[in-house]
Design a protein around this nucleic acid. Sequence first.
RNA 1: GCCCGGGUGGCGGAAUUGGCAGACGCACUCGGCUUAAACCCGAGGGUCGCAAGACGUGCGGGUUCAAAUCCCGCCCCGGGCACCA
Length: 820
Amino acid sequence: MSDAVEYDVEAIQNRWLPVWDEIAPFRSGDPDDPRPPKYVLDMFPYPSGDLHMGHAEAYALGDVIARYWVQQGFNVMHPIGWDAFGLPAENAAIRRGVNPKTWTYENIAQQRESMRRYACSFDWDRTLNTCDPEYYHWNQWLFLKMFERGLAYRKDSSVNWCPNDQTVLANEQVVNGRCERCDAVVTKKKLTQWYLRITDYAERLLDDMAQLEGKWPDKVLTMQRNWIGRSTGAEVQFAIEGRDEPVTVYTTRPDTLYGATFFVVAVDSDLAAELAAGSGVEQEFADYLAEVSKISEIDRLSAERPKTGVFLQRYAINPVNGERLPVYASDYVLADYGTGAIMAVPAHDQRDLDFARTFDIPVRVVVESDEDPSVTGVATGDDGPHVNSGPLDGLNTPDAVARVIEMLAEDGRAKAAVNYRLRDWLISRQRYWGTPIPIIHCPTCGEVPVPEDELPVQLPSPEGLDLQPKGTSPLGAAEEWLNVRCPRCDGPAQRDSDTMDTFVDSSWYFLRFLDPQRTDAPFDPEAAKRWLPVDQYVGGVTHAILHLLYARFFTKVLHDMGMVDFTEPFSSLLNQGMVVMDGSAMSKSRGNLVRLSDELAEHGVDAVRLTMVFAGPPEDDIDWADVSPSASVRFLTRAWRLSGDVTSEPGVDPVGGDIALRRVIHRLIHDAQLAVESFRFNVAVAKVMEMVNAVRKAIDSGPGGDDPAVREAVEAVAVLLSLVAPYTAEDMWARLGHEPSVALAGWPAVDPELVKAQTVTCVVQVAGKVKARLEVDPQIGEDDLQAAALADQAIVAALGGVEPRRVIVRAPKLVNIVPG
RNA sequence: GCCCGGGUGGCGGAAUUGGCAGACGCACUCGGCUUAAACCCGAGGGUCGCAAGACGUGCGGGUUCAAAUCCCGCCCCGGGCACCA
């Protein structure tokens, strides 16, 4: 029975959208829900405009996972919200002269409607916007908790400064010396700023990655390890002539102490300034410092830069042999890593060697090697027997390291030490559209937290404020807001006028989804116990370091506060790739922008989703030029048409149906399930395509549309398809005589008996080359299989009378005969 | 420089982790349906060869009865970190 009814994408979308609004199949908040909980989370979007192709991919993939677990009988929490504070809103607002708030909420409304139409399986009872006072209230609360615990503090230091956005940047936001947002060349500026003490958690951030091994992409774990940058070595004390206190240096190679021929302090460190004072080279030092601070981040990072520095006319004493080492100030030593001072061993460190050659400092080899660094200009590598090193002579590197630490530790002049590349997280921003920092600066009491019952400190209206970037926060001009009484002494005081980095907002939002309306706490610890950690997190690899590291840090702090009982927020992570066009990232200026709205209008929601999912492995980039949404429409039409060809009644027992079809279908459902659970969604789609092909054949040239197995198969197609193409699946489900929603129909039960193969194709090889194929019982014994293989005509011919030297039998799939 | 990935038909990609390389789809060719075209349905193809067959997963070697898969060396592409002592 073929029908004249056509597959009409537009009509199907319009038919089911209101029905879903009505039945809300993805609500997860019923406290009496008997289903086991599962938390599937997509990274929330930034409301910079309407959804684009990248969102379409990410949410299509997240939806496959969420909908799969719903079909498997879980109460899936799949929430969405908006990461709604931040610079782009503010910049757009400045350009158009509108309130950033208005702009932001308009975009949110638009994205929300687009997500609804895109059929995202979100629980719409759980949305949040980070720019709502109800949300950022708890940013402030968490900040104050950290302040209490000494994890939030203010310090004066040289910070990354974006001259374009006129704001400071976290280390993580400086990419190749440029501002991550606007690409301006980053400079340095000395400012007093708020920091979060993430370095206190460096060790745990590293160690707890053991929990994530195999469940997060290796790439992300590696990136985080690199970023944290743990190194082990020793702290060694050097006396400085004419200074009471010794100076500590950090080195990973204490074994090379006998090779130290000079000593360097970071030119911008306090120590350098102190040592320069009274040295007679004050002017030279000051000139050098001025020159260095003019160098941009980009130039500073250039590896080719020649070494520069100033001899401070002072000497450090090598603790192992009492030698006098000239002390230099240079910019190749970083003030904020280790102690800002190093011992320099030119023979075995390339940078020290470069410096030594520039300043004509002796090079002394202490680890034996064939090449002489002072001749080749190449410092020699790690291991080898030590020479010129007194008691260390003859030892290899690890032994020499241990020995020298032991020697110096006796009188406290050295100890084993660990260092991290990770720096504390600078969170102050001199911009308007963010969470106000809830601190009041009082001339007598200092930094006073805003009392909890006065939270949230709401952003003042931008009316009358100059939002143009100018290096200080626009909030500083909101005088009525700014000037308050000190909560402690009631004297005149001022609010902190900076706002928080928006990465604070996204560091804990996954907890707020538990109950976004809650007013007495950021979240309910009991609910957190039930739902968290997040079972599956889905998002772009662009957040591999920043967001994920910060969220992990916050989670550990909350753990230490006793608010959550886990230490890692995201049990499993899937990074989807990007959607590109003609090999490169889409952009207006490049002229290769593909508009999602155009694609949706042309092919429909289901076809776009299907195209995203089928294009390849989820973590790979999709080149839109390589894929075919119209082919997706064709397939969906083919699948949909099956639902009109089923003539048996709903509920008919499939057991009497065509056994061959049932075997194929059950095997494919089984395979599709494995594919989905291992994130091979493209393969799962291929399996559904095979199902459709098999059913088509069964209807046209097999048992026909009335066979119960055909109904069973088409119903399975509808359910499996519902993960990817919800509109088509729902319409098929209705045409099959069922009530909505197919999303809740349940994953088809796979009969293990039907999945078992009846016969197996056994490959018979001679010398590793396939010469025959046998259809055999899967239970066949090795001896029987060997006999059957050797008896086969083609095998007899291939052997040509030669006796087999060896026969390898892997029943039931393979026999390999090695001729004599 | 250091650290991760990856290289399979004309294209996107499969391959139960050592056991039939190329599933599924795109593009293409041929056939059916049609007055015709589109749609739809069916068939085809890794390369070379008329064929038997030979060769074939970046390149070169190795292990194994058997290698896209494991090992060694190289080449290329993508990503991360990078004056971090």
